[in-house]
Design a protein around this nucleic acid. Structure first.
Lengths: 167, 167
DNA sequence: AAAAATATGTCAGCCTTGTTGACTTATTTT
DNA sequence: AAAATAAGTCAACAAGGCTGACATATTTTT
């Protein structure tokens, strides 16, 4: 079988129509990997992990959230949440308040200490986003937000809208 | 201290200049959560996890990658990789070839079976991306790719460029 | 008023996937 | 010949998911 010397034996692995969008797939992987690496450095120093970050983030984002609401946002089990939530309460980053209407519920609030930590964790991420927007053209912010939101399951976009001051 | 009746006691939690970009922070969280949920369903059926997915993804993306290169992309330890790579080799999704120039190296290649699985895992993610691009305006693709790439640590963007047929 | 449903908490144990540290083997470089 | 490098392996540990079972307080339904 005759082949030109430079023709590769195996073709360039899916470069046409039915090929998956590998470009954005891997960009999401790399972007998310580095995006989470910043706060991880801070968390490590105080013996917390990513799970603590997510819990604190949303309690800070929507103070007064109940346990059930938080579980719904995070999509983890009650037992998984309990482990990290207990630590956040013990370290006084978060407090619980018995629900005013339904006394079975526990409303979750960040303390001043909790808000400070949430801010410290958000800052490097926010800085990375700001630099990336700068590089890619700030006029594209709306399109980027729109794209990211469209990546979320339709039935869960309401969750995003329910957060205060969010688009 | 005099306050207008309607002014909230606690302000709308950082809505000005020095406030972190909570909008995009949480959009990334939700988008990535749902983006990874699709392949997880497929992986579960065959007893694989996300770690297998990532390894197979990159071996398929750049056939002939050495173990060291893969470790560098994934940013995990040799021991973590070994566990899942061994399974991928045992199940004949991946084969190893002794490096032609340096016989200490092991080049990694997907088998037909491996390529099929990689494709099956990429399709739902690709479909989600296509729908999201459609919704947010396909003309914004370049800007979105640019943004995501700008979110990656500068010293690691070369890694992305080294993948075949990628921007 | 009693029964059922709901919100939360907790105990126990399992799995995946990351980690460190120590050490081996084959091969290449010095 | 010695040192460095690429890869593999054993052992132990930790974080953070999971399931199942069950307890308690409170609210809703009957």
């Amino acid at each position: 079988m005759k082949r030109t010397k430079d023709a590769p034996l195996i073709t360039k692995a899916l470069s046409n129509e039915d090929a998956p969008d590998l470009n954005i797939i891997e960009l999401l992987f790399f972007a998310y990997r580095d995006f989470t690496a910043d706060p991880d450095l801070i968390l490590e120093k105080i013996g917390f992990g990513r799970a603590h970050h997510r819990v604190l983030y949303f309690i800070n984002r929507k103070p007064g959230m109940t346990v059930a609401e938080l579980l719904d946002v995070l999509k983890i089990t009650k037992q998984s949440l309990a482990r990290v939530l207990k630590q956040l309460i013990d370290t006084e980053h978060v407090v619980q308040v018995t629900g005013p209407r339904d006394r079975r519920q526990r409303e979750l609030y960040p303390t001043a200490k909790g808000r400070e930590l949430a801010l410290a964790l958000a800052l490097p991420q926010s800085g990375r986003i700001a630099r990336a927007l700068e590089e890619s053209g700030p006029e594209n912010r709306a399109a980027i937000e729109h794209f990211l939101k469209a990546m979320v399951n339709p039935d869960q976009r309401a969750q995003i809208d329910s957060l205060p001051a969010a688009g």
